[in-house]
């Protein structure tokens, strides 16, 4: 149990004049060395560095170790710890009520891929403007070590049982269903995670970040495909990621042949530097194919798998820009004439 430490010198503030302390949460009660705490640290770093006002953020989660974490970062943001597997619906409702909220959902692999797979899939279809982080460790932690639906076939449980069932790849599901930003990363990869979260903030539409986050207590042994050791061995980044925020006026030079510049909705940019292969994250078919191949080979592809902006739920539904919760009687209650007109419809032609 410890406060999640962020390596920032005291006295330093971000563009809003806020120090890192303004982004801290309660003391974490997760196990020492839990990948989830590392993710919380990346979230705080990203929101602090980007300079997002904490009160604008709504932290939504379901049930499980992962879903406890919103209490451990950004205490100045409102949070809602929903029922198991149903975070997508409350997040959708909150965003509909107040479109100015920056909705950050945190879920786990059980919460998303098992009990919550239905709501997860429908959220991906709707393209609600929000960030959805899966802290994916392939195991049920709070209930002590059962397999989850993202456990790979052949992966070993702590007590030796071998998973017989195929795993659900949440990224593949999300891409198939039209999610507009899909990325995978590893909790231990600070250099990749922080720019990914910043890009998620800058994007408009649903962002799915599937973060492999090893469970040190129940799934960190030999034979597990989600142990620190296994993930480090099999991590294959698609590209190196750099994030340039919209307010940063610095002109960045980059070699066009090996680096791809991606524009984000709020005016920020991503620089994706080519590594082993030339990967185009805007190609849906290619993304699905690449994921399927990597699964066959047992590789863990990380980076931006798919990015293709499209209309958000608010845009499709043509909902006004004023946050709905702010509307008063004046705007909401139609006048007497409308009242009479409606009732006229229910006459009988007299």
């Amino acid at each position: 149990m410890a406060e999640i430490k962020i390596p920032v010198k005291s006295g330093i503030v971000n563009r809003l004049g806020l120090g890192i302390d303004a982004y801290k949460g309660a003391v974490s009660t997760l196990c020492q060395g839990c990948g989830h705490d590392t993710i919380s640290r990346h979230i705080m770093t990203a929101f602090y560095e980007y300079g997002i006002e904490p009160h604008r953020v709504a932290k939504m989660s379901g049930i499980g170790c992962s879903s406890k974490t919103p209490a451990y970062f950004m205490a100045r943001s409102c949070g809602l710890n929903a029922v198991h597997g149903r975070m997508p619906s409350v997040a959708t409702g909150a965003k509909l009520a107040n479109k100015d909220l920056l909705v950050l959902g945190v879920s786990g692999d059980g919460d998303t891929a098992a009990i919550g797979i239905g709501q997860f899939m429908h959220l991906m279809r709707r393209n609600v403007d929000m960030i959805y982080i899966i802290e994916n460790n392939g195991v049920y932690g709070l209930t002590k070590g059962q397999f989850s639906a993202t456990s790979d076939p052949g992966s070993k449980q702590k007590w030796g049982a071998v998973n017989q069932y195929d795993s659900i790849d949440c990224c593949a599901v999300a891409i198939e269903l039209g999610c507009s930003f899909v990325a995978r990363s590893f909790s231990g990869d600070h250099k990749q995670m922080v720019p990914l979260i910043k890009a998620a903030i800058a994007h408009k539409g649903t962002v799915l970040l599937d973060i492999i986050s090893p469970c040190v207590t129940f799934n960190n042994h030999e034979g597990s495909t989600k142990s620190y050791h296994h993930v480090q061995e099999h991590d294959e980044p698609l590209h190196a990621i750099d994030f340039i925020p919209y307010y940063d006026e610095v002109q960045v030079d980059y070699p066009a042949g090996t680096t791809k510049k991606v524009d984000l909705a709020d005016g920020s940019h991503l620089l994706l530097k080519k590594l082993d292969q030339d990967y185009d994250p805007t190609d849906k078919i290619r993304a699905i194919e690449t994921l399927a191949k990597s699964k066959q080979e047992g590789a863990l592809l990380t980076g931006i798998l798919y990015l293709n902006p499209k209309k958000t739920l608010h845009e499709v539904e043509e909902i006004t820009n004023e946050p709905l919760y702010k509307l008063t009687e004046k705007e909401l209650r139609p006048p007497k004439e409308a009242f009479a007109e409606i009732q006229e419809r229910f006459g009988w032609g007299a």
């Binding site: 619906s89 997040a91 409702g93 909150a94 509909l96 009520a97 107040n98 909220l101 709905l324």
Partner: peptide, 12 residues
């Protein structure tokens, strides 16, 4: 009901 609760929570 989840959506309705989320919206109620956020003030609508």
């Amino acid at each position: 009901i989840g959506m309705a609760i989320g919206a109620g929570w956020a003030g609508a």
